[in-house]
Amino acid sequence: MPSEIQHRYVVIGAGAIGGCIGGVLARANAPVLLVARGRNAEVLAAEGLTMHTPDGPFHVSVAVASIEEVRLTHADVLVFATKTQQLDAALREWVDRPVVAADGTVATAGECLPVLTALNGVAAEELALRYFARVYGVCVWCPAAHIEPGEVIVRSWPVVGQFHISRWPASIGTAQDTDFLAALQTSWSRAGIIVRLPEDVAPWKYNKLLLNLSNVIGALAQPGADVDWLRDAVIREGEDVLRCLRIEFVPFETSTAARVDGPTPRTVPGFRSAPGDSTSQSLRRRTGNVETDYLNGEIVRMAHRAGTSAPVNAALTRAARAAARGGMSPGGYTAQQLSDLVNRVE
């Protein structure tokens, strides 16, 4: 039977994914707390969250706090929804936070609280295991964007996303994990996030990693540029590296079929064009960094580990770092410039 504990979901990072998770859970009256910073935190606290959806805007009252204001209990679940390049700092901020039990005993978050890693790439779970004993990997499919403070653009409604989740690593899963995930599945699916519980989420995350390799191309290429050949090349190179290392990934046919139940992106009124993927959003907000090092860069890392190279992914990773450092807006490269970039000798 699922756990009878009424969990509170503490969502760390209130951007596109974190804001979407927090918003739909709050609309469904599930206990949720958004942890945000800066201007985004100010707007959320003062005005709530605005969710722009294909069915119109929804205003959601959400509980929001800074890390200093959060008092943790054993009913809490930490949901990390930062970018991967920001994750290590966030994990270190939370690992030693005190968790007070009903009898007054105190443990640390790292010792006793479950952690969900709702991030792209495949590095987050191993990072989390450095600090937390109970880690659950999440493969995120959620077409959402965060451009302005206090707002998220959700391109699918009422099903906003589909998450595959399992204990990380799957080999250490217990009956406690089964009960916890069953309770989460019920709560989140009711809110509009379809939750699937595969035996092992790792092959799903590697599938998503391959799909995310083209994010950097969408961020760098001018609108309308003919870059389909490059998308094919970067994914093909990624597949070759995974096969070289005998890393299992879910076939694209399987992942496409899994999304039939949603999410289904549609046009959002007031936003004529899609806001782009997470890499484009980071460039647009001029954050100074992008997660490409943990997407295309992950393929480069694995290639180096195998004693080979991944020149297409390496070239695009370098270009993404330069674009972020230089404050470049999305769409700074023509198709020819990208062709020249990846055809240089590494």
Results as ranks from 00 to 15, higher is better:
142 C>T: 10
251 P>A: 15
25 L>R: 00
237 E>N: 03
143 P>Y: 04
285 R>S: 08
81 A>W: 01
329 S>Q: 14
128 A>Y: 06
279 T>E: 04
278 S>P: 07
249 F>A: 14
112 C>W: 03
235 I>Q: 13
272 R>D: 12
13 G>W: 03
221 A>E: 00
258 A>G: 09
124 A>H: 10
147 I>V: 13
36 A>S: 12
161 G>T: 06
196 R>K: 14
78 L>G: 01
36 A>H: 08
94 W>L: 12
282 S>F: 00
16 A>C: 10
314 A>S: 09
27 R>V: 05
276 G>I: 02
3 S>L: 05
114 P>E: 04
17 I>W: 05
153 I>F: 02
150 G>H: 00
313 N>K: 00
175 A>N: 11
323 A>T: 07
261 D>Q: 12
28 A>R: 02
104 G>A: 06
262 G>D: 09
21 I>Y: 15
229 W>I: 11
202 A>S: 13
128 A>H: 03
134 R>C: 01
70 V>C: 07
128 A>E: 09
142 C>H: 03
195 V>W: 00
199 E>A: 12
335 A>N: 09
238 G>A: 04
50 T>G: 04
38 G>H: 05
300 V>F: 04
218 G>K: 00
310 A>D: 05
240 D>F: 06
174 T>L: 02
332 G>I: 08
68 E>R: 09
108 T>W: 05
9 Y>R: 03
296 N>Q: 08
225 A>T: 05
31 P>A: 15
98 P>F: 04
178 T>F: 06
108 T>G: 06
105 T>Q: 12
253 E>M: 11
17 I>D: 07
67 I>C: 08
126 E>W: 11
340 D>L: 08
128 A>C: 10
162 Q>F: 02
297 G>T: 03
150 G>C: 04
101 A>E: 13
107 A>E: 13
335 A>P: 09
129 L>I: 12
12 I>P: 01
315 A>F: 00
282 S>N: 07
112 C>D: 09
313 N>Y: 01
250 V>A: 15
244 C>D: 11
278 S>L: 05
346 E>T: 11
70 V>G: 01
257 A>G: 08
215 N>T: 05
49 L>Q: 08
264 T>Q: 14
209 L>H: 02
19 G>H: 04
129 L>M: 14
328 M>Y: 07
167 R>C: 12
218 G>R: 04
280 S>R: 14
213 L>F: 06
54 P>C: 08
125 E>W: 03
207 N>K: 07
228 D>P: 01
322 A>R: 15
107 A>N: 11
145 A>H: 04
28 A>K: 03
173 G>D: 10
108 T>N: 05
29 N>H: 15
